[in-house]
Amino acid sequence: MILETLENVLASNGLITAFMFVGALVWLSYLISAKLTRGQVHGSAIAIALGLVLAWWGGFTTGGSRGLSDIPLLAGVGVLGGSMFRDFAIVATAFGADVRALKGAGAVGALSIVIGVLLSFVIGAVVAVSFGYTDPVAVTTIGAGAATYIVGPVTGTALGASSEVIALSVAAGLTKSVLVMIGTPFVAPHIGLNNAHSALIYGGLMGTTSGVAGGLAATDPKLVPYGAMTATFYTGAGCLLAPSILYFVVELFL
């Protein structure tokens, strides 16, 4: 009876349960950071990595597509971590940001977005070809998926790709986003990702909003507004380029 009531309370107050759960997870992560890594690995990086592991576990046990939040008791995590709150918090980080650095985003930001889309697309397409795909629609869709997991299905749907190919493109985009979240704090010192200028470029090159949001949170939250500023245009640019010009170019080659 006690357990049943408890379950009811937790499930019917989903968002509040999520606050408590995430708070505990963050606390544990900072403890691990301080005790086990002596502060070498940042607490937020550990928290994000633990979140991803739990997300894997959630998908594994429930078969759903929303990670840990498919477990009924933790459905609130899905709300807290959904795009609504994510974007709200990203916008809030802009408060107090350096206006001059953001305004300077213009040219170099636009350039990094275009290069970012092209780079990921070409690499995704080449990998698709090397795995034996020769159909231009499939190659374009997988290339688009390597840009972000939104560009992939949008492109695939526009070109009439099979659902199997679209699923592959989403998987490629998800891999990218997860890897950006985990990898950024480790790569950051080696690529000079420690100032507003390089964060702008990072956002434009990576493009995945979740990846950039997670990667910068784990590296230096002060850089978030700059990376998010350029990343927010990336998916739009990808959806514009992939099913049109890029598809045309792929057709020429295959």
Partner: peptide, 25 residues
Amino acid sequence: MYIPIVVAMAARQNVFSALSGGWMA
């Protein structure tokens, strides 16, 4: 609240499907 929200975001990613998408993905 940015970092906690991002942690929740990580916990709701479809990691399972990313890792079971096969080698090509």
